[in-house]
């Protein structure tokens, strides 16, 4: 019985601790609170540090401090909290600090409601705060991936000195599924840039301010080069039934699960549907979309938002084929049947 039934939001915490996370600073928010609950139990319980901050603004700045000191540090939140952290995430990007942030998306705008949406895509994938920066964005679609992606996220964050977001939704956070936990505990290495409060690191400085236009320009271009490197090295996706597909679904998070079911339903009805599921939203699997655009007749992008990822798909296929948008908002989650029936019309048309 190696696989254990674990809730997505808890799998994040297990993956984090096994991945070497030592610090969690957060503020409760539905539907991400279970991450904080599990972190409070397991971070403090294992001699690591969980601290409930006074708000998300200060939580992200505690993360900035702990990351400055070389710690593997994370938080979990949802849309309104992520928005409050935007300034801090920009500072992390400017100072090139590694951090991991889990966004269990809820519905907006404003207070919206606590049900599932995927409307933080633009905010998280495009940056969110001020300045020319990107975040690495991983998009788990199962409890297993909630664990695995978080486990890996710290090393990715440190390799590129960037913030890694785990962009998920209330469904993937709430789901319980069998999870196989990693069997090896990882640890942060000593970084030559961090401030460890010792003689060796005394000369180190963590800052995002560069008053000289030349130096800030140079810094920005350096960041852009780094993001290109990330695009070349890190992009990941998964395909289902794309070999002979004539129609392609694309989705992330819970919608990818629904599309997976829809692909099977449509195949049973004789329609050659496939699914391309980006596992990284930045970098985005642009090239693979462009290749498949030569093969399929159209792409259906299924999202619980107003078509935020669809724009990236349109850009990827350079409008060479129709990109259809199936969108739900406000906490509405499509059923497999809804998606299948609609696709059946569009894919025969």
């Amino acid at each position: 019985m190696d696989r254990q039934l674990i809730k997505g939001n808890e799998a994040v915490v297990f993956g984090a601790l096994l991945g070497g996370a030592t610090h969690f600073f957060g503020y409760p928010i539905t539907p991400a609170s279970e991450i904080a609950h599990a972190a409070a139990q397991y971070f403090n319980g294992t001699g690591r540090c969980f601290l409930q901050a006074e708000d998300e603004v200060n939580a992200i700045n505690m993360i900035y401090g702990a990351a400055s000191a070389g710690a593997r540090v994370m938080t979990g939140s949802s849309g309104p909290g992520i928005a409050l952290m935007a300034e801090g995430v920009s500072y992390l990007a400017g100072a090139e600090l590694p951090a991991v942030i889990v966004d269990v998306q809820r519905a907006g705008p404003g207070l919206g409601n606590i049900w599932a949406e995927q409307s933080d895509y633009n905010m998280v994938v495009k940056g969110g705060g001020h300045g020319n920066y990107r975040n690495i964005v991983l998009a788990p679609f199962s409890a297993q991936e909630m664990c695995d992606f978080t486990y890996r996220a710290f090393e990715i964050a440190e390799k590129y000195r960037m913030t890694v977001f785990i962009l998920t939704d209330a469904y993937i956070g709430q789901i319980m599924e069998p999870v196989l936990l990693p069997r090896e505990v990882r640890h942060a290495p000593r970084h030559d840039w961090a401030v460890y409060a010792d003689r060796e690191s005394r000369g180190n400085l963590v800052t995002s301010i560069l008053m000289s236009t030349e130096l800030l320009s140079e810094h920005n271009w350096k960041l852009q080069e780094k993001y290109k490197k990330v695009e070349a090295e890190l992009v990941e996706w998964e395909e289902y039934e794309t070999g002979d597909a004539e129609y392609l679904f694309s989705a992330f998070g819970i919608c990818a699960r629904i599309c997976l079911s829809a692909v099977h339903e449509l195949r049973n009805k004789g329609i050659k549907a496939g699914l391309l599921r980006p596992k990284t939203l930045f970098p985005f699997p642009e090239k693979r979309f462009r290749e498949l655009a030569k093969q399929v007749k159209s792409v259906v992008v299924v999202e619980m938002n107003n078509g935020q990822m669809a724009r990236d798909v349109e850009h990827a296929v350079r409008c060479s084929i129709p990109v259809l948008r199936y969108n739900w908002m406000g906490g509405m989650v499509p059923s497999t049947q809804e998606v299948t029936e609609r696709a059946q019309k569009d894919m025969r048309g």
């Binding site: 700045n61 505690m62 401090g65 070389g70 710690a71 005394r202 800052t207």
Partner: peptide, 22 residues
């Protein structure tokens, strides 16, 4: 000394992060 520059108003939060890590 070791130096970290913080966002406006957040020095105590940043210091908290460093202090909890070291």
């Amino acid at each position: 000394t070791g130096n970290v520059q913080a966002a406006h108003g957040r020095a105590p939060a940043v210091a908290t992060g460093v202090a909890r890590a070291r």
